[in-house]
Amino acid sequence: MPAAVTPEREESGPSRAPSPEPLAPIDRTPKLFIGGKQVRPDQGYSRPIVGPEGRPVGEVGEGNRKDIRNAVEAAHAAAAWAQASGHLRGQILYYIAENLSARADEFAARIRAVTGRADARREVDATIARLFTYAAWADKYDGQVHHVPVRGVTLAMNEPIGVIGLACPNESPLLGFVSLVAPAIATGNTVIALPSEPHPLSATDFYSVLETSDVPAGVVNIVSGAKDPLAQVLAEHFDVDAVWYCGGHAGAAAVERASAGNMKRTWVLAHLRDWFDTRQGEGREFLREATQVKNIWIPYGE
């Protein structure tokens, strides 16, 4: 089993009995996160995850079609999230940020270990800021009142799409993941997120942040594994209402083709984005993709 990344644990405390060797770190087994529970993958296979020099850094569950099916069911069961007030959803997003912030060093160390990047702490800080952005938006992404030539009003409501499958970017494993999850749940959707395929450990670490942040079970489901095949399953699923896909051309084409089954909305983020850039990585574009406009005509008088 690969070594855990937190260096503190590798040192013995002074009160401990002298030992000729430092103690082996305690193994951590990241699981899938479905319906608010940490679950083992249906098939019981794991996939090895390697760090920048090809050194093993952990193993994650190999999700399959059945795990996706369970996650979609859990996401539907959490549909009451759409009726939660923006105020409540905002509070929960702030709380996620708060709990991530308390573990910022740990998350930074993980990103450093799996990517070898020096700016890991910057990614964690940007992620916390991103969560604040969507906590802010949760009670502000208003609809409109249209002026139409009848005596009455037309209310243009921004409604959540429903259940969204998210194939998260491979780069920026924590920031990219949160950049898709946060706008989707801020607007009342429930999601099945496929984390970065080469660097999924930041996402699997993240479920324990979700668990301590009052996120209702099933609002965020995380299925690790081979991203393109899992994205294909999401795109084919008749109870999934939209798929956002960050990945290569072949995967994007497959998702778009499969989406024709129930004509779900797809959003292919075809370009390599700079997730740190707030213009590219957050804001109204994401909120628009997370919602659909319903116009309610209400004439009055005679």
Partner: peptide
């Protein structure tokens, strides 16, 4: 549904999105 008409039906206008 993308459009809901209350006590009316098949009203359309350029200012109000349809889809």
């Amino acid at each position: 549904a993308g459009v809901v008409w209350v006590n009316c039906t098949n009203l359309f206008d350029a200012a109000s999105g349809f889809g």
